[in-house]
Design a protein around this nucleic acid. Structure first.
Lengths: 355, 355
DNA sequence: GACGTTGATGGAAGCGTTTGCACAGGTTAC
DNA sequence: GTAACCTGTGCAAACGCTTCCATCAACGTC
């Protein structure tokens, strides 16, 4: 047992006060301290006051490990994303962190891009015994994998994929892509390329697939035929977008417009196009996806989605679920919208009657 | 006590196995299980083997709360940054996470931009009792604040500021800014603006101040006189950079070159300049700072610093310190370099003899 | 005035680990 | 052949909380 007196009003210096120190100082039992500090009922106001003062003077905070062990709750939520450091996920992260921190929970990040990738994540379930809830973002999991995660018995909210008995938050990537490409066909473009995900993606992320399908649908709607040579992988990175654009420009019949599945790829593509002497949008139209921070300043026409909001909402949903496990899963669709800026326009006149 | 038999080879389904279940199954005491699983010495190879198998069959993992409580170590490091979601910090984060995850530690993020900001962070010390070590990034702390954090007795590594008895990682922002501005003076510019931090920054972040000083030094070296109207705040954001550029263009004698303290601000500035009909670099040269992902593709001349590496190195330093608390603090300076791309050139000829 | 009721409190048993200590048996050193 | 050591193991006491249960006083109620 430690002596309360060690904790001067300076509030620091040495070992940390325990609940017992507070109890001694407030002249009550540890049980009462625990109740008083957590705002539980059945504590006399005067007692609570005394406990609060004692805790304040000792600069006491409950040891989370002890508290977790005793209560069985970690007051922590896990956030698993494909890759920390990618723009979209860092924004989602900041949204999550803000909401979670405000509620007194901790957030524990997991990057599924580490060694072993998603498979390793599902194999190890590294969040086991450390989180109360898991926010799983854009993880392309098959049913057995989902089942394995579900068996770990943490509350789950998924973003970007739907899993029964977990709440989910999705954006309709198919519709959004259709919208973007429809914008191009509406302008009169007939030769429209797509810069998408990874070729033979081992992870089978759904985002690029959905956007690709939306692209196809929009072409069909416009009565156009898809040319497979116009759909090239861009790896969701600037470099990938640039390479893809190079490839497209090398075609015998290059596109008059490009739909890029992310703004990063669009930026890479745009730069290559300009380096090649093409004017955007006079010679080539470009549409992106995400509405990256810089897109507005680059004048990039794109599909806007509120990524920070996605993180905030996902976190809120998860916290609500933890607060009341009875409430069933909800499935929400988050809106996207087309933001027309200055990288899209009608196809070059000279080309219009080439076909 | 639970029966080992509940844990089929399926490895899941229901409550989680405890160390006691493993002990029962391996026919040893819990103490031996603990030692065997953690690779401690004085365990017979055959025993260890048996324990490992039992643990494997039960899909056992140690409960971190219990382990933390008993051992006094959380095997967690805290990462405190001014603002999650800002490009620089999300990159540092991803560097940290990679290193920390590989070593089996958890990382707990803190954003100092939340309610109350840095002051609140120092007041509450939210990482208390939850981390073994703290990686503190770009926090502008005064000595009493640093002292308060030090009193919380966590190992600390700082990035972007120097604190005695904590290891630190800094970049020489003064020299880097000098280099950037020296590049402009070398090209013949005489009217060089600076787009910097926040006016009367309540946080007193050192980064903008240092870069400003480097700017002044470079001007002096070139025999130029600083014009206070040419130094405007840009808030380290795209929007701020854009506004700052507007302000600069409104001057009776606008600059021929601008040094921006971050690439984001440079991008905003560049866009405004172009919208105003200025060609970059023919009419206006722009230098940034950071080497943002998109900078290469925008052709932005900038100061490159390896932010991911900063995170990785900081994490490694912290882990080393935790592994061997005896090892003294180290202070490292991380290199920066000027990357000349296509946004800088000589000042417009017509203007050279205006002054 | 005896009696359930309610509110405030304390005692004590966990929670699942780690770790200091004790101990048995087997070596090695003289 | 005894003393001094290792090695491998188990026992049990922490670690600092939460929470069930019992207790006790004060309060109407009939």
């Amino acid at each position: 047992m430690t002596f309360g007196v060690r904790w001067g009003e300076a509030g620091g210096g040495g070992l940390s006060a325990t609940i017992e120190d507070v109890a001694d100082r407030a002249q009550v039992s540890v049980a009462t301290v625990s109740r008083a500090l957590r705002g539980l009922p059945n504590v006399a106001p005067s007692t609570r006051q005394r406990v609060l003062e004692a805790a304040e003077q000792l600069a006491y905070i409950a040891d989370p490990s002890a508290s977790r062990l005793a209560s069985g709750h970690s007051r922590t939520i896990g956030l698993a994303v494909p890759m920390l450091g990618q723009w979209v996920y860092s924004k989602i992260f900041s949204g999550v962190e803000a909401v979670v921190a405000a509620s007194g929970y901790d957030v524990l990040p997991f990057s599924m891009s580490g060694p072993g990738g998603v498979a390793r994540f599902v194999e190890d379930l590294p969040f086991r015994k450390r989180v109360d809830g898991l926010l799983l973002v854009d993880a392309p999991l098959d049913p057995p994998q989902l089942e394995r995660i579900r068996a770990s018995e943490v509350a789950m909210v998924t973003v970007g994929l739907v899993a029964e008995d977990a709440s989910s938050l999705v954006v309709d990537n198919v519709a959004a892509a259709r919208l973007a490409v429809g914008h191009l066909t509406g302008l009169g473009h007939q030769r429209i390329a797509l810069i998408g995900g990874v070729e033979d993606d081992p992870y089978r992320f759904s985002v690029p697939v959905d956007r690709y399908n939306g692209y196809l649908e929009a072409l069909t709607t416009a009565g156009l035929q898809a040319d497979p040579r116009l759909a090239v992988p861009g790896n969701f990175s600037l470099e990938g977008g640039a390479e893809a654009m190079h490839e497209l420009l090398g075609l015998s019949e290059p596109p008059t417009a490009v739909f890029c599945c992310s703004d990063e790829m669009a930026i890479g593509a745009m730069q290559v196009a300009r380096d090649a002497g093409l004017r955007v949008p006079e010679d080539l139209s470009i549409v992106g996806f995400d509405d990256h921070d810089v897109s507005e300043y680059l004048g990039l026409t794109t599909i806007r989605q509120d990524v920070i909001g996605l993180g905030e909402r996902g976190a809120a949903l998860l916290l609500a679920r933890l607060g009341d496990p009875a409430c069933g899963p909800v499935h929400e669709r988050h809106p996207t919208r087309l933001v027309v800026r200055h990288t899209t326009g009608p196809p070059p006149a000279g080309l219009e009657y080439r076909w």
